[in-house]
Amino acid sequence: MDIIPQLILNSIIAGAIYAMIALGFNLIYGTAKFFDLGYGALTAVGGYAVFYFYKTLGLDLYVSILLGVLIVGVIGFIVYKLVYSPLRKRKSSGMVLLVAALGVLTALQAIIAILFTSQFQTLSQNSSSEQVFNILGGAITQTQLVTLIIGFVIMIVIGLVFRYTLFGKAVKAIGDDEEVSKIVGVNTENIIGWVFFIGSAIGGLAGILIGFDTGIEPTMGLSLLLKGVIACIIGGIGNVYGGVLGAFLLAFIENFGIWHISGEWKDAIAFAVLILFLLFRPHGILRK
C-alpha cells in the first residue's frame, strides 16, 4: 500500500469529521457570537447516547442514532436556555460566556464519565466484518465513507437553508445585527434556541460517527471542538463554506505534517497553524 494515497484518504476522512464539527460550531458562533466550548462535550454526549440505546438497551441502529441526535439537540437547547441565554440578556462580555462554556464542558464531560466510566468504548458491533473499499491504492471503511457523505449533505442543506428559507434569512440577520433584527420583528430568542438545537445535533452526529469509526471516550470533545474552531478560523469564521474548506485544509496539513514524525504531534501542528493564521490572516481564507 502506497503511503501518499493513504495520507490523502486519511486527510479527507479527518476533514469530513472536522467539517461537521465546524459546521455546527460556525452556525452557533455566527448567530450567538461567542466560543461555545460546551459544544465539545456534546459530541461525546451523542456518542454515549447511542452507546446506551444501541449497545445497552439493544434498540435498532437507526432508532438509536435518531434518538441520540435528538437528545444532543435537546441538551444543547437546555444549556442555552439555562446558561447562555441569561448571560447574553445581561450583555455579558465574550470572556464571561467563554468561562461559563468551559464550566459546561468540564461538568458535562465528568457527568458522562460518572455514568459510563471513562473507558474507551466503540459503537460498532464487530468492526472486523466491516466493508473496506480500496480507492487509488488507499483503504477507506464504509463508516468513513458514510461520514464523508453525511458531512457534504449537511453542508449543502445548511447552505440551501441559509439562502432560500425565512429561517435561514432570520439566522443570517441575527448574525449581522441582533438588535436590528429584533426591531424588524424577528423572534431572536426563539431562533437562537433553534440554532443551538440544530448546531448541537450536528455536533452530536459527528460524535456518533466517530464512535462507529474509532470509538468514544468522555474527554474526546475538547480536542475535536478545538479542531473545529481552528477549521472555522482558518476557513473564515461565520462562513458556512469557509468552515468546511478550513476543515479539509487543516486535515491535510495535519496528516501530511506527520509524514516523517510521530503522530502525537498532530495537535501541536493544528495549533501552530491556528496561531500563524491568527497572526497573519485573522479573518481566514474566505471573508464572511
Partner: peptide
C-alpha cells in the same frame, strides 16, 4: 469526576 462536575 465529582470534583470536575462541581468545579464546572
Amino acid at each position: 469526576q465529582m470534583r470536575q462536575v462541581v468545579y464546572g
